[in-house]
């Protein structure tokens, strides 16, 4: 093909313009995103960080399903008032197992990055059931049906498998026992409870989160998730302690 013919095609079919747009538009994103995939070389690591239990993961999915992220952030900024109000600022490593991240963009309600164990299970259940019973001026919707809806557990192994495929280190053992672990975490007296501790560590919170050990509800899952927020690793508290010791 002659050079003229090539140029004709380039212009006639608008291919030149297409290439120009791609060339101009692709650079910015690429150079900002690509280095983040090597970030683990530089930032603090959290060797003891554990993964979400099946019950907590199910709760996280309910959090996503209900759009909680639209009003609650999970990202404490490096600002004095953020730290004073919500706790040590968030580190990148703390959300490394969060597919997707739930940093949020709006605080119609308060930040939840470190809400875990700040309130009792009973408080959370009452608050989710009807926020205005606990906080009279709250504008949060009531989620009463969570208490009566049974949690679907038969496919939790598939969820864990998909998580492993995107890089979360779930073991074969965890995947095989996913449904049972979800049940056992909210039934600390059941014989299967030891398995949860074995697989996810001693620090795992084992409680009947909704107050009803006999039934595994969506409330159990959501409260289990809220209670573990900010507690998968203590890296953030450590880095602050180190900084203070260094001063």
């Amino acid at each position: 093909m002659s050079l003229f013919g090539f140029h004709y095609r380039l212009e006639r079919k608008a291919i030149g313009l297409t290439i120009g747009i791609i060339a101009a538009a692709s650079v910015g994103g690429f150079v900002e995103i690509a280095p983040l995939f090597t970030i683990h070389q530089t930032v603090e690591d959290a060797p003891g960080m554990r993964v979400y239990t099946p019950l907590e993961l199910a709760g996280r999915n309910i959090y996503i399903r209900e759009g909680c992220y639209a009003c609650h952030s999970q990202m404490i900024r490096t600002l004095r008032d953020d730290v004073d109000r919500y706790g040590p600022y968030s580190l990148a490593v703390e959300s490394k197992y969060d597919h997707p991240m739930l940093w949020g963009s709006k605080r119609t309600g308060p930040d939840l990055a470190r809400i875990g164990e700040k309130y009792s299970d009973q408080w959370h259940v009452a608050h989710l059931n009807n926020p205005r019973d606990v906080v009279p001026v709250s504008v949060m919707p009531a989620y009463g049906w969570l208490l009566t809806t049974e949690l679907r557990t038969d496919d939790l192994d598939l969820h864990l498998k998909a998580q492993r495929r995107v890089g979360v280190p779930y073991t074969d053992d965890m995947i095989a026992n996913a449904a049972m672990d979800a049940y056992a975490q909210s039934n600390p007296d059941s014989p299967q409870a030891d398995g949860v501790i074995k697989r996810y560590g001693k620090a795992t919170t084992m409680r009947a989160f909704d107050g009803l050990p006999s039934k595994l509800t969506e409330m159990d899952a959501l409260v289990a998730y809220l209670q573990v927020l900010g507690r998968l690793t203590d890296a953030a508290h450590k880095s602050i302690a180190q900084a203070e010791a260094g001063q």
Binding site: L36, A92, H99, P100
Partner: peptide, 8 residues
């Protein structure tokens, strides 16, 4: 589940 997590 998103292919990316956290800061990425």
């Amino acid at each position: 589940y998103s292919a990316f997590s956290g800061v990425q």
